[in-house]
């Protein structure tokens, strides 16, 4: 059985940025991390591999620039078997539909039984890629998985999270693409041995010419900006001692909450 995990490398949440001429610019030395829900997706794939009596190969697929390499290596260190890195400047800043088409062309011939992805990326947050890909690759799908049960080689049962504490079990015929919600498991750390073994694991790099795709993207970016505030906020900033009396006064007399 072949399981693919879609992994995206994103800019760290604490990175500083500014908006210049309607475009966001991050500090050039900002850290990158693996997208949060993708860590849970990788862990779920590794758990499937470890608990299955079949042979399971876990393949990580990532579309992203050079600086995605660390995320890919982390996944291999944790136990993924190999990786596919789609790396080409032409694929920078694509919309969801275009990303999914690139992934389709890159992954189609692998004939994965299961594709796991995060439910949403922490940067662009389309919340779409895993489901778009299910259609392109004619797979069944489920989103926001909070538990999976693989039943033999044909079916997988998935507990889907719904709003406000509700859930629903869904049974999918394989092949299936499933998006994973955070909290489904406890992602592991890489072991020292894992890091040593990672160095021998293959990373296949694909460029746009390997993938051969004509993209006609319909959406385009006009402008980026800082969201407008909805409320008038009274700010307290600086040394805590310097504003504590004022703060208590505001809490007691303006908001009347203490």
């Amino acid at each position: 059985m072949k399981v693919c995990v879609l992994v995206k490398s994103v800019i760290d949440k604490d990175s500083r940025f500014e908006i210049k001429e309607g475009l966001v610019h991050f500090d050039s030395y900002s850290d990158r991390t693996t997208n949060e829900s993708d860590n849970y997706a990788l862990e779920e794939a590794l758990l499937i591999k470890e608990s299955s009596d079949q042979d399971v190969e876990v393949v990580v697929a990532c579309l992203g620039s050079e600086d995605s390499s660390q995320s890919i290596k982390d996944c291999l260190s944790k136990g993924a078997d190999r990786a596919i890195h789609i790396l080409d400047e032409k694929f920078n800043s694509l919309d969801a539909l275009s990303i999914s088409k690139v992934l389709k062309n890159a992954l189609e011939e692998e004939k994965f039984d299961i594709i796991l992805s995060g439910l949403q990326s922490d940067d662009i947050g389309n919340g779409q890629i895993g489901i778009l890909l299910s259609e392109h690759l004619n797979m069944s799908h489920a989103s926001l998985a909070m538990e999976t049960e693989l039943n033999g080689a044909e079916k997988i049962r998935v507990k889907r999270e719904l709003e406000a504490g509700w859930f629903q079990w869904t049974t999918l015929s394989l092949p299936a693409s499933i998006t994973i919600q955070s909290g489904i498991n406890k992602p592991r750390y890489a072991s020292l041995r894992g890091i040593m073994m990672m160095k021998k694991k293959p990373i296949k790099v694909l460029s746009s010419s390997d993938i051969g795709i004509e993209l006609n993207q319909a959406t385009s970016l006009l402008e980026q900006s800082i969201p407008k505030k909805e409320k008038e906020t009274k700010f307290f900033d600086g040394e805590a001692d310097s504003f504590m009396d004022d703060l208590i006064n505001s809490m007691a007399n303006d908001l009347k909450v203490i």
Partner: peptide
């Protein structure tokens, strides 16, 4: 902070 009355 976009929706806060008091922001510390």
């Amino acid at each position: 902070f976009e929706i806060a009355d008091i922001g510390i």
